[in-house]
Design a protein around this nucleic acid. Structure first.
Lengths: 192, 192, 192, 192
DNA sequence: GATGAATGAGCTTTCATTCAT
DNA sequence: TATGAATGAAAGCTCATTCAT
């Protein structure tokens, strides 16, 4: 008789939206953004193609939403803006947190690396990524400065590259990459 | 008619083939494999679409050829099969060589990373990549063993990840990544 | 419950119906029938898409209602059925009335001309239009006959075409078409 | 063995292009631009959808080409720029020419009127249309001035509207509009 | 060898209409 | 009465690939 309440609508919408994003993330990560069709996504999310456009105004918009959500989750857990200073004890926490995220959101990170290499699509999140990277870099430079390193900038850049490489290798070959061993080694090395 | 003519034909063919591959590499690296059309490649190589199919039997085949050529060049320069043993002095050479290649074939490496994240396309070269990685890994494990490291496997994996990360970062942001500084630092660190 | 309530309902319905039609007329006239979506109309009328279908059983039905209402208003003002005879004095009134309508319902006439050129949609009102045109033509033929014209039929057809052309030109370029001047000239010419 | 010569290609292309435009003109005029699909056009022209895009880069581009061709043909026959002066004898020629064109290109004119009422599409040819209308208007104003009319501007505007109305009525109802009679009457009236 | 016209499947997107609530 | 989620058909368009010449 009466129409659905606003709250009911909101709830349904939120669930559907999430389901679409989950389906799309899986497919994007597995097959690449360009090789995933709206049909496939809709089919995986058990909805019609048309409905998808009720939730996202384009395929690109969907990708952007996925990436932003991933970045948001990341920043929630990881927020580097607390005070911007990394104590030795915090470095350990930082690394542990990073590995936790890497494992939990492996699929997302796979998509992330794939997007990174595609300018046409990377521009969607370039700004936000930079906003994250900048304070991170600063933090690690400061950290290595306080540690008394001779060339803290180089150290920080190598540290960043190392984390990138580890993430990349793990995300692409999770079954053979010895993530736990690497984690331990890393903590040994950088949190002495 | 004469054998010379045939040789000339062969030469022309080879040159044209190379031109197609160069054009395609550029476009693939810049816009992505999926966002590059055969028309664009043919146009950039100054030939017709039809002729392109005279040289490569499909778009995928063209990509495969590009990747294999890149890998071949890599192995020519870098051949790790000489004797499979990396002396300390050779490690320095190895790293210098690697950075040389990275700079010279930056566009290729950009394509390489982009392809790596797309299984549908990575399968084309997966085998060969593994064939390269395996001895490399062994070599570095041996190296770190001989160096007396406590956990040479972990060290080798970190070393590999570091090289991957450096390559990745450099290739995506060549203008801001301090490649020379990183190279010096790396040699300092690993070739003592 | 009480009849008054029902009357109020009726009133609300009527108002809403009118609002939908007004919104649709605006959009149809501005962007064309095909380029106007039900969503746009519903949004402009501040109702839901679903409710619109409570008032009109299809988009075509809505268009038909708009056209018929326009035609009805026209006939109310203009009623050529009074006695079917046009005196010289009445011709002046007729023309003045026509220009009044043209200015007041310019948007409607714009839609009218747009619809006229699209058979798939014109068929909706073809019959009624003919019912209007026929007596009008007869009336003018009689008028020109009484005026002693040599070829009153030709005169009537030219007169009709002239009115069509004036309407068309004015409706499409209201800002540059000198409607007042044309009106004066027309009255001078035909109501001597 | 040898590829087609450039001339052969050119010939084939020109024929195909014309066939596509003819098919499209028919369908656009009959069903309207928006109600005609690329599929229908391709099917009527006996080609695939894809090929159509080898000749026209979009549906809009196709429409534009049709309209421009129509306008070109019109100007070839009708070129009002000869000297810009209309003698009495020339007025007769002018009108006869106009009716000839109207009959010969009736389908085009139907499309023209339909396009005129759709701003989204009219903009494609607005400029060119104005370039034609302006000298025409000037010419007729001059003509009526020379004829000694009291208000030549009004006369010219009425004359223009009359021609528009006649064209409109004829093009929409060619079977019942007495085009020959109207032509005679018009010549009588304006070329005394 | 060399051309580019031609195909057809598949893409993203839109939208009139229906329907559970 | 009133909502807007949901559908599905159809639109415009792209592109790897083939083929007659």
């Amino acid at each position: 008789m009466s129409p659905r309440t606003e709250k009911q609508f909101e709830l349904i919408r939120e669930e559907r939206r999430q389901k679409i994003m989950d389906s799309a993330l899986d497919l994007f990560a597995k097959n690449g953004y360009d090789n995933t069709s709206i049909s496939q996504i809709a089919s995986k999310a058990d909805i019609s193609k048309g409905l998808l456009y009720n939730y996202f105004k384009s395929k690109e918009d969907l990708l952007e939403a996925i990436l932003n959500t991933g970045i948001d989750e990341l920043m929630d857990v990881f927020d580097p803006n607390k005070d911007g200073v990394l104590e030795v004890s915090e470095m350990k926490f930082f690394l542990e947190e990073m590995f936790k995220i890497l494992k939990k959101h492996r699929v997302f990170w796979r998509l992330y690396f794939s997007v990174t290499t595609q300018p046409s699509v990377f521009k969607l999140v370039e700004k936000r990524i930079e906003e994250i990277y900048k304070p991170l870099t600063k933090m690690t430079v400061d950290y290595f400065t306080r540690q008394g390193h001779e060339n803290p900038t180089a150290e920080a850049i190598l540290f960043g590259a190392l984390l990138d490489g580890i993430s990349f290798d793990y995300v692409l070959k999770p079954d053979i990459f010895p993530i736990e061993m690497v984690k331990k080694e890393l903590i040994n090395r950088y949190c002495c």
